[in-house]
Design a protein around this nucleic acid. Structure first.
Length: 720
DNA sequence: CGTGGGCGGATTTTT
DNA sequence: TCCGCCCACG
């Protein structure tokens, strides 16, 4: 039993994990320790050394990107197509199971996946139809409630209201929403997982079939699994399966959406004697960066324990910049990018990481002004665009008439004289008769007036015709026909300027996407249905231009799994990062710290951290203190580029651009943070100053009277 | 039926 | 400040 090429180039720990005996395994893989390598080599090992049939291997990831990467690497390693292996995301695998077993899970064969946007619309519609106040029953919160329960494996009937009328209403909404989904054959993301779990739980025949088939189950990013995903895995693996889990408790940053780091511990309990491997040698970052990261994360409690090390050089210290405000911070970053590119570096070697998307704007402006190309991750993706979703809605309705959400979306798009009144009639009929909008529309035509009835009838005929005309066409011609015959293309052509043009281009791109689409043979379904599911499950590339060499900008969350020679971690201020909302609870704070750890370990050669003393947030100036995470990094790893001069700075009068760094003291020595006394309001703290000289407006937080804005010249303030 | 102004809200994101 | 949503108006 040897396959030297499979173990060549691996370190001892990696080799041990790859060639581990066929028993439950856990690989704790630190950042940059070659986790994906171990996973892919393990698959190759199973096939080539242990002679496991690829047919018996299931590999699960969280993102399509990770799944695609793994598939590619495995194919090139095995030298054969990886089709017999099941490699996919949790949702993708669950989807495949449901397609194969729709009968056993009481789904219509034509069931459609809906994305969170559609889900929110559906929930909003239900809240409206109950005539509930949307400000009290916030659709987003209801959605969050439903998804969180599904992620815990709970149906509405499993929930008790505990005498809480609020909770009772939420449960009711959950129930109604699910009924609505079942009626229209829609399955949301959480439902995919829950149904797939119930399928295995309730159907012993199905369960034993898959247990026999998939003896080897490999899971990536195990720390990100939620309850239902873990329960599903456990069920599938059963007493005889061989699970191989890879994860890093220090990189668990999705607790807020149901991920349970505890699953790592639970796994060790559920599979006693699990073989544990630690990958601690880091191949990515310099010594300084690594030690800074280690020091930071050591502040967390309950870690499984792991210390990254590198045999590489110490490298440069972490550089810390105390910016004056967010524009100064952006200028600083731009200048460092310039330094790098002047030395011949690529712009795409540089990554600007921030806590929240809103922070990207300042950097975009600065980069734009400096004419440095950049790419922002996290925008709208292809299949999420309105025009694409419109076209898909037509296709979905053609495929599945009872899809009410799609019906409502396009019944009057482009406008064909079907207004609120007509729709109300149809909706009422549908509700009264517990039928679909489609059926209701057919029944309502006669009772509507001549004109309205005609319009509605026209729509029904249109859909029927499209179905007839396109039924036997290849997928891309089907799409092409639909976007033209419905008038969608013509409709968007009218849109003013570039926007209309871009939308039409996108619609044409949809045809191209359909042409290049390769159906999933295993799922045994019509190409159109397969394409529609694909569109939801893989919402497509970001809109940004990939081909251009640009500075990369993204949130800390989306940076996970990536690496860059130069990393800027910006907005390192308490309240921003860690975010205000997480500061009050320990678990939240520890998760933010892990996020900081993730950011830190993205850097290969240089890491810059910056914070702004003054920042415009939600339209008002705020004054922050440096993030507590900065203080958790021992000073020997940090070099301050411009040390802060004093704790409470003299008031600064902003000049026209962020370049000015002049500091002025105001008459009367008023500084931010200064305690002052006012004749009428008593004592308070200077919170903000805007404007010049004695005309300046000062915002003071008074102890007894709260926040007041006063004019300096008249306020007669006395420093305390 | 489409647009503009007023209003409230404002982490993180994948599927 | 900025964005998205709702309603009122043309």
């Amino acid at each position: 039993m040897d396959a030297p090429h499979l173990l060549a180039g691996l370190n001892d720990e990696q080799r041990a994990a790859v060639s581990a005996p066929l028993a439950p395994t856990l690989v704790l893989a630190g950042a940059g320790s070659g986790k994906t390598r171990v996973l892919t080599h393990r698959v190759a090992w199973l096939v080539q050394v242990e002679h496991v049939s690829p047919h018996g291997i299931l590999a699960v990831t969280f993102t399509n990107k990770a799944a695609g990467e793994m598939r590619g690497r495995i194919e090139s390693m095995l030298g054969v197509p990886s089709a017999p292996l099941w490699i996919g995301t949790f949702h993708g695998i669950a989807h495949r199971l449901l397609r194969l077993h729709w009968r056993e899970t009481n789904l219509p064969q034509a069931f459609q996946i809906i994305d969170s946007d559609d889900q929110l619309r559906a929930i909003r519609k239900i809240i409206k139809s109950l005539e509930l106040d949307e400000s009290r029953w916030v659709p987003k919160e209801v959605m969050w409630f439903i998804n969180a329960r599904k992620d815990e494996g709970l149906r509405a009937k499993d929930l008790k209201d505990e005498g809480d009328p609020n909770r009772r209403q939420f449960i009711k909404l959950y129930e109604l929403y699910q009924e609505q989904c079942d009626r229209s054959g829609s399955v949301d993301f959480a439902e995919l997982l829950l149904r797939a779990y119930e399928l295995l739980r309730d159907r012993p025949d199905v369960l034993s079939h898959y247990r026999n088939r998939f003896r080897h189950v490999l899971v990536d990013e195990f720390q990100d699994t939620n309850t239902i995903q873990y329960d599903w895995l456990k069920l599938l693996v059963g007493p005889t399966g061989v699970p191989f889990a890879v994860g890093d408790d220090d990189q668990s940053i999705y607790r807020w959406r149901g991920a349970k780091v505890e699953n790592l511990q639970q796994y060790r309990r559920d599979f006693p004697g699990v073989q544990l491997f630690r990958l601690e040698q880091n191949y990515r970052s310099t010594g300084n960066i690594l030690e800074a990261a280690n020091a930071l994360i050591s502040n967390n409690t309950g870690r499984l324990g792991k210390n990254l090390w590198t045999s590489g050089e110490r490298g440069e210290p972490v550089r810390l910049y105390a910016a004056f405000n967010e524009r100064d911070e952006a200028d600083f970053v731009v200048n460092r990018v310039r330094d790098w590119t002047l030395k011949g570096g690529r712009r795409s070697d540089c990554a600007i990481l921030y806590r929240s998307n809103a922070q990207s704007r300042t950097f975009e402006e600065a980069l734009l002004a400096a004419r440095i190309p950049y790419r922002v991750y996290g925008g709208l993706r292809f299949f999420e665009r309105a025009e694409i979703k419109d076209a898909l809605a037509y296709l979905r309705l053609i495929f599945n008439r009872v899809d009410d959400a799609s019906f409502e979306r396009i019944v009057n798009l482009p406008a064909r004289g079907i207004g609120t009144k007509t729709l109300d009639t149809v909706r009422n009929y549908a509700r009264a008769n517990a039928c679909s909008m489609w059926q209701a529309a057919g029944a309502c035509i006669s009772e509507l007036g001549n004109r309205l009835g005609q319009s509605l009838h026209g729509f029904l005929v249109l859909i029927e015709q499209l179905d007839q005309q396109t039924r036997n066409l290849p997928l891309h011609e089907q799409v092409d026909h639909v976007i033209n015959a419905t008038g969608l293309v013509a409709y968007y052509k009218q849109d003013k300027g570039d926007r209309g043009e871009a939308k039409v281009e996108n619609l044409e791109e949809l045809v191209t996407a359909a042409r290049g689409f390769e159906p999933d043979e295993a799922a045994q379904m019509p190409a159109l249905a397969n394409f529609l599911s694909h569109a939801v499950l893989e919402s497509g590339e970001d809109q940004a231009d990939e081909w251009e060499d640009g500075v990369q900008m993204m949130t800390l969350h989306s940076a996970k799994g990536l690496e860059f020679p130069i990393v800027f971690m910006c907005g390192m201020e308490d309240g921003l990062f860690p975010s205000q909302r997480s500061i009050t609870d320990v678990g939240g704070l520890e998760e933010e710290r892990r996020l900081c750890y993730v950011g830190t370990t993205r850097a290969m050669k240089q890491l810059f951290m910056s914070y702004a003393e003054q920042r415009r947030l939600h339209g008002t100036d705020t004054y922050g203190t440096p993030s507590r995470f900065i203080k958790e990094i021992p000073p020997e790893f940090i070099e301050e580029i411009r040390p802060r001069i004093q704790v409470s700075r003299p008031v600064y009068v902003p000049r026209s651009s962020g370049s000015g760094r002049m500091e002025e003291e105001r008459p009367g020595g008023i500084r931010l943070g200064q305690r002052v006394r006012h004749q009428k309001f008593g004592e308070g703290v200077v919170f903000n100053v805007e404007g010049d000289g004695s005309n300046a407006h000062i915002q003071i937080n008074f102890e007894r009277h709260g926040m007041k804005t006063l004019v300096l010249g008249y306020a007669n303030l006395e420093p305390v």
